[in-house]
């Protein structure tokens, strides 16, 4: 039932973007199975604690995570990358967590979270359902995050399959290299060179969907077509650092 809905959402990605831009959740899917999520949390346990008495360890504790600004726990030493994302307005909700768990570096350049990523959407939703148990209950705090999420949709595989034209990407890249250095040097703006094409495309679509926060990048990505993003990915992936 639930996965049926998700399938529908995946095939309807074009329409879906339209709704997202309006800021409306047109469809909702339930977060996943908390019990499965509890087991998946084993992958996180080496660095993160959750539940009563949870403390910061290698990673910050995950209580009251939903609705929290990124990098906002007092006393935890965050990476430069996540602090930059926080300054851009990154907050933790089901959608941003899903993007982060899929591949941390796609959402936050320079994050210290050393996690290969969880490619399976159902698994991410299961894990997110488990994490959601440790944040505010909407029955008590009506403004607390939803317990059903519209985050359960992947990027349309057709978008990932697009073959970009590196020459077109080279032409378009003028807009990028005003800030991002082609040498890969990070003087306050992260490097975007030699990035796997898939990741580049996912990151740009995350901006486009406004899941990934940064006003400038949301503006830039917002007016790039799927083909243009693929071309930029093809170009930047093959620049020599």
């Amino acid at each position: 039932m639930v996965s049926g809905l998700r399938l529908f959402l995946m095939t309807a990605t074009g329409i879906w973007f339209g709704f997202l831009l309006l800021g409306q959740a047109a469809f909702a899917v339930e977060l996943g199975d908390k019990e499965k999520g509890r087991k998946l949390f084993k992958l996180c346990k080496n660095c993160h604690q959750i539940g009563q008495g949870a403390k910061n360890r290698i990673g910050p504790h995950l209580n009251l995570l939903f609705g929290r600004k990124a990098a906002s726990i007092d006393g935890f030493r965050y990476s430069k990358g996540i602090k930059r994302a926080a300054a851009g307005g990154l907050e933790w909700h089901a959608d941003t967590l899903s993007a982060y768990l899929e591949n941390p570096k796609n959402l936050v350049s320079g994050t210290r979270m050393n996690f290969a990523g969880m490619k399976d959407l159902d698994q991410r939703m299961d894990l997110i359902a488990y994490l959601r148990l440790f944040s505010d209950n909407p029955a008590d705090i009506p403004e607390a995050d939803p317990t059903i999420s519209d985050a359960g949709h992947d990027l349309d595989p057709a978008i990932l399959a697009l073959k970009g034209d590196p020459d077109y990407g080279d032409y378009l890249s003028g807009e990028c290299t005003a800030c991002h250095q082609t040498s890969g040097q990070d003087d306050g703006v992260p490097s975007i060179v030699a990035w796997p094409e898939d990741d580049f495309v996912r990151a740009m679509h995350a901006y486009k969907k406004q899941v990934r926060q940064h006003p400038v990048m949301q503006m830039i990505a917002g007016r790039l077509s799927d083909d243009e993003i693929a071309s930029l990915a093809a170009f930047f992936a093959n620049i020599k650092e």
């Binding site: 959740a25 909702a28 339930e30 607390a144 939803p146 317990t147 519209d150």
Partner: peptide, 10 residues
């Protein structure tokens, strides 16, 4: 939902 009344958006 089968489990409860669930918040969708707000």
């Amino acid at each position: 939902t089968d489990e409860k009344i669930a918040k969708v958006s707000g």
